[in-house]
Nucleic acid binder design. Structure first.
Lengths: 191, 191
DNA sequence: TGTACATCAGTGAACGCGCGTTCACTGATGTAC
DNA sequence: TGTACATCAGTGAACGCGCGTTCACTGATGTAC
């Protein structure tokens, strides 16, 4: 049942895509290789035609999720003012939608903690994802000064932390309070 | 080989203590019941004399880690001024030591992401841990106003996010930059 | 353009392994008399 | 206080299960002539 080269490449791409979604939704450890290829109607044997190991898939999936998430942010109203785009970005990032749908969201917030225990290539992919998130923040809060750089790092830490906490608590009111508080941070409103 | 009641209770306590340490160090999914009791020189059979399931242990371990962490923070120089204690707290929380030793640190930062996928009792224990962290923040940034409350929630999100990012990246310079930026946040220096 | 053969994408079953959990058993501790 | 028996903390081996990975096989695709 050999497929054409193009089909094979497409299969590989779809495996990475499915993994990027599933890992963000359920966490890396809770998603098996079988879960990923099963979502595409394939068997695990097929997986090892395309990847050396699950670790290889993890690194690629983080990379893919990061690029997807990065490009979505950059697509948002490129003609608007920096202030307006910053407000939109924060609104999206700290929304209930983002909290409730990690599978489409930022991989830094979705996988941050788990990556602390993963292999070197995964940590490398995660670091690139974090750098991409910082680029997004920079696009709505530019500046070459040390102060501007530190403000951006604070912003990244705040929004990731807010999302992690809002997702982990079972107290709906507290979760919303956290997201609102960071969204309306004076540090972010008047840059 | 029955042991006395007191010994049995002590064994139970030691199991929770070891679990609190191991879960924070390696993550919940990566630590087995055997790992926990093995660290105490016991066999898995003994574990089920004390706990219904691993889930029960997880919830108790989070609770224990939270209480331990909370009490350590409250022990820090209770006679000093609020400003001095806030500086100490932030310095400790955002230190390299805390980043490199999650097993003794804040369970909210260590387990935040993983808990998003765990069972209800674990989420409940995590929420209590988060509330305890907010109490610690309140002790160095008191106030009944809505503004003060929001500032504390921002602080919690920032410091947890900073630690999560600093632990997940393999870029040592970036990790230190993140911790320093949040530590020196104007939002936290001049409350 | 047609034919013969090599390649390899995907199947399906198997592997060794570690997991959470169970259970028959041991023997020291607790208790009733 | 001493004896007889019940309790139960801990052992050690087993269980069913799902995991990551491997492999013989199939048959459509790619290639050399």
């Amino acid at each position: 049942m050999r497929r054409s080269r193009a089909d094979a490449l497409e299969t590989r791409r779809r495996i990475v895509e499915a993994a990027a979604r599933l890992f963000r939704a359920k966490g890396i450890a809770r998603v098996s290789v079988g879960d990923v290829v099963g979502a595409l109607g394939l068997t695990v044997g097929a997986f090892y035609r395309h990847f050396e190991s699950k670790d290889e898939l993890v690194a690629e999936a983080i990379e893919a999720a990061s690029i997807e998430s990065f490009e979505r942010q950059n697509r948002t109203a490129p003609e608007a003012s920096v202030d307006a785009r910053r407000a939109t970005l924060l609104g999206n990032y700290l929304s209930k939608g983002h909290r409730d749908h990690p599978e489409q969201g930022c991989p830094v917030a979705a996988l941050g903690h788990e990556v602390a225990h993963e292999c070197a290539s995964t940590k490398r992919a995660f670091t690139r994802a974090l750098e991409r998130l910082l680029e997004v923040v920079e696009s709505v809060d530019p500046g070459d000064s040390k102060r501007a750089r530190r403000r951006r790092l604070r912003t990244a830490a705040s929004i990731v932390g807010a999302l992690v906490l809002a997702r982990a608590t079972n107290d709906e009111r507290l979760a919303e309070e956290i997201l609102t508080s960071v969204r309306e941070s004076p540090d972010l409103r008047s840059v």
